[in-house]
Design a protein around this nucleic acid. Structure first.
Lengths: 117, 117
DNA sequence: TCCAATGGTACCCTTTTCGACACTATGAGC
DNA sequence: GCTCATAGTGTCGAAAAGGGTACCATTGGA
């Protein structure tokens, strides 16, 4: 059944590439990680940066990123509810990866031009 | 319907990350690109480097990579059939990305340790 | 004629991914 | 009581992704 997230990748050279990809390849994950690189964001702040994401999808992807140890989710005891998301220490080590992806996309993909974050 | 490959990514900053990911996130693509970084490989050579890939899946992913302009497929007029695969010029620009993914996987994913290619 | 090597293709199935839509919970303020 | 803001959750369906299995085509050599 496909490339299950967290498959063991003890097969052959190069599998580390697939292992890393399995953590970041869900829709919206890459761009979420990119935005979190610049600091803490609340749920709705992330959501407003992604024009077409549904609440449901965003919640799910954030939960997976958290489960994989790439981001941290801080719940505040307040009303209205407040939840902050940050890159974890581990997530921060992904910055070269995310930046490499962005640099390549900016240079090579039509319509992927980026404006100021 | 999911993140269709080649979606226009003219929405917001950071979309370039997703755009790039959409090209390389099919199962086996990352590791195929990694192996092609070291030079031309024939279909069966690639296949033997990936212990659990089916012929069908490998063919499909190679065809997609070719369609996206990341690899070149050279057919030789001979029997038995011979088809060589290489990174395209465009594909070569992805090397920093693939290497970043591999470096991160090697350092951070259990069981993703790599041996000599 | 049969077998081998190579690189496929056809048909079908299962699972996963993603999104639409509706609904929920909390306290604060009016 | 009602509305608001925030961050969700539940249910379902469509499409995509991935894979299994069988079969195919070609020439060369035994």
């Amino acid at each position: 059944m496909g490339r299950t997230r967290h498959d063991r990748f003890d097969c052959s050279p190069g599998c580390a590439v697939e292992a890393t990809l399995s953590l970041i390849d869900g829709k919206w994950k890459g761009v979420v990680l990119y935005h979190l690189m610049s600091g803490t964001l609340r749920f709705n702040e992330i959501r407003r940066k992604l024009p077409n994401v549904t609440q449901r999808m965003l919640t799910n992807q954030l939960r997976e990123l958290e489960a994989d140890g790439l981001i941290t989710r801080t719940v505040f005891a307040q009303v209205p509810p407040r939840v902050d998301y940050d890159l974890s220490e581990r997530g921060r080590t992904l910055e070269p990866v995310i930046l490499a992806l962005k640099v390549w996309g900016d240079a090579n993909m039509p319509s992927a031009g980026s404006a100021a974050a």
